[in-house]
Design a protein around this nucleic acid. Sequence first.
DNA 1: TATTGTTATACTCTATAACTATA
DNA 2: TATAGTTATAGAGTATAACAATA
Lengths: 153, 153
Amino acid sequence: MARHRNSTGGNPPESLRDPLALRLGYQLRRVSVLMMADLVAALTPTGLRPAEITILLLIGANSGCRQGEVAAALGIKPANMVPLVARLVDSGLVARARADGRSHSLSLTAKGAERVAAIEKLLDRHEAGFKSRLGGSELSGLLKSLSKLRGDP
Amino acid sequence: MARHRNSTGGNPPESLRDPLALRLGYQLRRVSVLMMADLVAALTPTGLRPAEITILLLIGANSGCRQGEVAAALGIKPANMVPLVARLVDSGLVARARADGRSHSLSLTAKGAERVAAIEKLLDRHEAGFKSRLGGSELSGLLKSLSKLRGDP
DNA sequence: TATTGTTATACTCTATAACTATA
DNA sequence: TATAGTTATAGAGTATAACAATA
């Protein structure tokens, strides 16, 4: 049951029918991948990856928090936090102190705080490019919908 | 500049401050990951992965389309299509025919068409669980916003 | 010469299991 | 005994480069 492309000499269709257009999960993923690729490109000059900047931002807003708290908040497995945090410590952006012998408390160094300020601006610019595609009041509704999808009441 | 958790005998805060709450890209990604995990769980009985079902759905809606068209429509690299399509062919779900010696035209087998019908129902149920978290008219607005973010005018 | 598909491969992200040490 | 972090490793997903065959 083929489409018999060009079998009658007609022009081929310019694009395929899209059965995924109304699939919420698929559309979310495509947009997420698109924004992630743009973010990675924007982060290139910093030498940091997306997961690392989320860690930096979270520590910046919660100085002295424990490593496990950061992992839980970001949905990162504790085992995967280890090399991420180690790299941030090695880069001189994060200070790691023993909190009680079995837990680490994390905070930004002065250099890390500077870097976070620069990253915030970079993120503002990165997101502005996408937000400009939305109507004036559309963004807040979108964020609210996303929050509901995550399970917030 | 630590928070001095419990240093005055107070209770620790139940959660961290979230500097990512208003970051569109981050919130999109968290929801996308959440839905993807639910989808993977829902797909377990089928033995198929998300990328494979998108290929099946696209072929189902565009019988006879070329492999490269499917790759382009789904944002999959041609090199990565090869093992995906091969597995679907081996499973007896997809028929691959030479279209013009250098291109393959793809279509569903009878078994593949049956499977797609079942998958559509499975996807309906999967997405219904999330859509139920949204208000009545919220979904269409959300899909429209996502379409704009992808660059559609 | 440009296009379609393929092969091989490498890199990132994520997941699990087993371990150490501390409470 | 439960918790926090660590180590090692495996898997999935995705990326590039080089190639063959065909238009």
